[in-house]
């Protein structure tokens, strides 16, 4: 920052602390395309055998492509609903007069911090009762609901930064409140919608507990549950293949992260995970 202190001690210090993470990610990628002799960490040959799961279905598991499709469906549907519902609700909370507005606001704020996993048992039983257990729709609805308070909160925050005068000008120009929202205000919060969309997609893509509990069956299985199932199967232990599945699974995440890092940094600092 300022030039009065030496920088290299800080870089060295943090470099040492960061080394294990870099090491783990380095070997995550290296191990998927190489073999190492027993007891050694230094690979001695290239191989593609760890990626065989792409072409042959592992016994007792769904096809990786089924799981991928399910995950994609799960993440994109959740994201779309979250975007639509929270941009509407966020606007209402930020800008509109309505009965119970501050109650809604307080509620959203409390729910935003509220530990949702504590509701898992009740949600599990509800889904069983209404017949949505072991369906993608059920787990999509639940995931959407749990993402919503955060989404609404973020959107409300972004709407708050749009100048009131833009809305006033819109009204004077003859627009209804609804037109003001769709034609004047929504275009101003496009970056927010983009960021929230990416965030929700990643959250959906990574989600594990909800599909594990609410939709564990093979035909509705998502990649996280698929991978966890592989790992916990003690009879068929193959670390290099697990890592390959993992790399396959994490690729979209890495790509999104690389392209939208700054946007995500913003939203993670208001984040809701661990």
């Amino acid at each position: 920052m300022t030039g009065n202190y030496r920088k290299w001690p800080m870089i060295l210090f943090l470099g040492i602390l960061t080394a294990p993470i870099i090491l783990m990610y380095f070997y995550l990628f290296v191990d998927t395309v190489t073999n190492s002799p027993p007891g050694s960490m230094i690979p001695n040959e290239w191989t593609a055998e760890h990626w065989r799961f792409l072409f042959t279905t592992i016994p007792g598991r769904p096809s990786i492509w089924t799981a991928t499709l399910n995950t994609l469906l799960f993440a994109t549907t959740t994201t779309s609903i979250v975007l639509v519902v929270s941009s509407a609700a966020g606007y209402a909370l930020s800008r509109l007069n309505m009965p119970g507005r501050s109650l809604f606001l307080g509620g959203v704020l409390v729910l935003h911090a509220f530990p949702t996993v504590t509701l898992l048992i009740a949600i599990f039983l509800i889904l069983q009762m209404v017949g949505l257990y072991n369906t993608l729709i059920g787990v999509i609805l639940v995931k959407t609901a749990l993402e919503l308070p955060f989404g609404i909160w973020i959107m409300k925050g972004f709407y708050d930064t749009v100048p009131w005068e833009i809305e006033m000008a819109g009204l004077q120009d003859g627009a209804t409140r609804f037109q003001v929202w769709t034609k004047l205000v929504l275009p101003q919060v496009k970056p927010a919608i983009m960021a929230l969309g990416i965030f929700s997609f990643l959250a959906g893509w990574s989600e594990f507990i909800l599909p594990l509990v609410l939709a564990p069956d093979n035909n509705v299985q998502v990649l996280s549950v698929y991978l966890a199932g592989l790992i916990s199967d003690d009879t068929n232990f193959d670390m290099a293949m697990f890592k390959s599945v993992g790399v396959f699974y994490v690729l979209p995440v890495i790509i999104l992260f690389t392209f939208f890092q700054s946007k995500l940094m913003n939203i993670y600092s208001g984040g809701n995970k661990g």
Binding site: I21, L28, F208, L227, Y268
Partner: peptide, 14 residues
Amino acid sequence: LLPRITPPVLYVLM
């Protein structure tokens, strides 16, 4: 930030 964006199942696998 990598640990945060990596899906938990894979992160724990590492």
